[in-house]
Simulated scan of single mutants.
Amino acid sequence: MRVMVLVKATETSEAGVMPTSELLEAMGAFNDQLSAAGILRDGGGLKPTSKGKRVAFDGEGRTVIDGPFSETGELVAGFWIWEVKDLEEAVAWVKRCPNPMPGPSEIEIRPFYEEADFA
């Protein structure tokens, strides 16, 4: 089962505050564990939404919206794509993850649709 693991943005990440060297080292070690276990497929950190854009669709119309975007708790600061046997395994790995932010934070796990879902 493939899952996307989403690190939710915080006010700190949206302000562009870079992680400490200790956190970068801890996250690097965690990524090494994921790789060694054969779970990690991809991952990365995202720049704040002030550096991004959105495209809104309405019928044939397209509107480009410049960041930053509000609702910090609904924004994504980083992601992984993992191959796990089930959601319980993904949850177990997330529980081992260092806190990705300097304060309270959340990580969301979302399964990908697989071909069998459309049969």
Rank of each mutant, 00 (worst) to 15 (best):
S13M: 08
N99I: 07
V94P: 01
R110T: 08
M1K: 02
A29R: 13
E60S: 12
M18W: 05
V17I: 15
S21N: 13
P48F: 03
L75D: 08
T12P: 01
E108A: 05
K47W: 00
L23W: 07
V55P: 07
E60H: 09
M101Y: 06
E74R: 05
S70E: 06
M27K: 01
W82Y: 10
S21F: 05
A119D: 13
W82P: 00
T72H: 02
L46A: 07
I65E: 08
L87S: 00
L40E: 08
V17Y: 03
T20S: 15
G38I: 12
I65A: 06
K51D: 14
L40M: 15
E108I: 05
D42V: 10
G73D: 12
P48T: 05
K53F: 11
K47R: 14
M1H: 05
I65R: 05
P100N: 06
P111Y: 06
S105N: 15
P102Q: 04
P19W: 07
R2K: 15
E83A: 14
V7D: 05
T63M: 10
D32L: 09
F79N: 09
G16A: 05
V91Q: 06
P100K: 03
E115H: 12
T49I: 06
P98W: 06
P111H: 04
E14Q: 12
G45C: 14
P102H: 03
L34M: 13
L87F: 02
A56S: 14
W82E: 07
V3S: 06
T20L: 07
T72E: 01
I81V: 15
D58T: 14
V3H: 11
P48Y: 02
L40Y: 07
G44I: 11
D117E: 15
E106A: 12
R110P: 07
A56C: 08
A36D: 11
S70K: 10
G61D: 15
P68E: 02
V76K: 07
D86I: 00
G43K: 10
K47I: 04
R41S: 12
I107A: 02
A119T: 11
Y113S: 13
G61V: 08
P19E: 11
E89L: 01
R54N: 13
P68H: 01
G67V: 06
M18P: 01
P19N: 11
I107W: 04
S35Y: 00
R41G: 12
E108S: 05
P100G: 01
S50F: 02
G43W: 07
N31G: 10
R110W: 06
L87M: 12
F57W: 10
L34C: 01
